[in-house]
Amino acid sequence: MPVLAGAEPFAHDGSEDIGVLLCHGFTGTPQSMRPWGEHLAAEGFTVRCPRLPGHGTHWRDLNGTGWTDWYGCVDAEFAELSRRCGSVFVFGQSMGGTLALRLAQQHGAAVAGLVLVNPSVTTLRKDAAVLPLLAKVVPSVAGIAGDIAKPGMVELAYDRLPLRAAASLAELWRLVRADLPRVSQPLLLLRSAVDHVVEPINAKIVLDSVGSEDVREVVLPDSYHVATLDNDAPLIFAHSVEFATRVHRDRAGEPA
């Protein structure tokens, strides 16, 4: 299947000091991260935002992939950035936040820090318990894309939720939740006050369970789930630049 226009991955080669890996969400595309990436590039950072396997084409393609495919993609991008930059940060939205946490769990201090926007590690939906069985007989249900408060803003994402892929995401959630104490990197978590996709319990689980000492939570007052395209996007961009700059200086032993 051809890649949807606007769903392409993007990259920018900037500073060799700070590199940022951007991870988009489930059923989404790099389009939801592009404004963030452009802001980071304008600040001089090196940026990578891959298109996760099965995304940006047709929802049926996503059902042919699983969490190991998505993780393998970001893991390879992280390795490439690590060869180029002194401090590599991972920024993720929704499932991208899940993948970012897994990278931190697997790579330890090689991950300089994490910025998570409405990360997902569980769901309170009552049908989640039967998802593995349901996925065997129902290919997809109505999608979750486009939860944005800003008028006129559109997320490029699937209008269907592929259930086999969703069942695989649930497996990743279980792994990530179990290993949250292994996350010791500086962490900035930004969550929307109103989110119709990821429940508030997700942020609470992350913040209560990680082993990080440098932790900050920021509530986004005027955005829904896809906050990187929403009214509070400038707030996300500014906080993330300040965070990465500060943490890199601390790692390098430079004065503020």
Rank of each mutant, 00 (worst) to 15 (best):
S120G: 11
N63I: 10
P30S: 02
I18S: 04
L187D: 05
S87P: 09
A145E: 15
N118K: 03
D127G: 00
I148V: 15
V47C: 06
F45Y: 12
V20A: 12
S87E: 13
H225Y: 07
L163E: 08
G92L: 05
G14M: 08
G56A: 10
L188P: 02
A129Y: 13
E242T: 10
A104D: 07
E199M: 03
A135V: 14
H107T: 02
S223C: 04
W70G: 00
G96I: 14
E77R: 12
Q105S: 02
L114N: 06
E217H: 11
L161E: 07
L101R: 06
S209A: 14
L62N: 00
G25Q: 10
T65S: 05
W59A: 00
V226C: 03
G44T: 01
G86L: 04
G64Y: 00
A129R: 15
L175T: 14
M33G: 01
D230S: 05
A7Q: 11
L99P: 03
R177M: 10
L207D: 05
V90W: 03
G44V: 01
G72E: 12
A109C: 01
V241T: 14
E217L: 15
L103E: 02
L207W: 07
R177V: 15
S240H: 03
D13E: 15
V206W: 03
V74T: 10
F26T: 03
G54I: 13
S120I: 15
P139H: 11
R164P: 04
Q105R: 07
I144V: 15
H39A: 15
D61R: 10
G14P: 08
T98K: 05
R102W: 11
H24K: 09
A166F: 15
D208F: 02
Q93I: 13
I18R: 06
G108C: 07
P151E: 12
I236K: 03
D127T: 11
P181E: 07
I201E: 15
A128D: 06
L103S: 03
R125E: 10
A227V: 05
G253W: 08
S240E: 04
R216V: 04
V111Y: 06
F89R: 09
R177A: 03
T27C: 02
W67I: 14
R216Y: 03
R34K: 14
G56N: 10
Y158S: 01
V215L: 05
A238M: 01
L116M: 07
A167W: 13
V218D: 03
V47K: 09
P53H: 09
L189I: 09
V219Q: 04
V141A: 13
V198C: 10
H24C: 09
V141H: 03
V117P: 01
L62S: 00
A165W: 15
G253P: 06
L81H: 05
I236S: 04
G72K: 13
A244P: 03
L187Y: 04
Q93C: 08
L134H: 02
V137L: 14
E171I: 09
D250M: 11
T65F: 00
Q185Y: 01
A42P: 01
V130M: 11
P234G: 08
P151V: 08
H58E: 12
C23E: 09
G146N: 15
K126Y: 10
F243I: 04
L21F: 12
A79I: 09
V141Y: 06
A238T: 13
P50D: 05
M95N: 07
D222E: 12
D222M: 00
M1T: 15
A109F: 02
A5S: 15
Q106N: 08
D232P: 07
P53G: 06
H12S: 13
Q93N: 11
K204M: 08
W67Q: 05
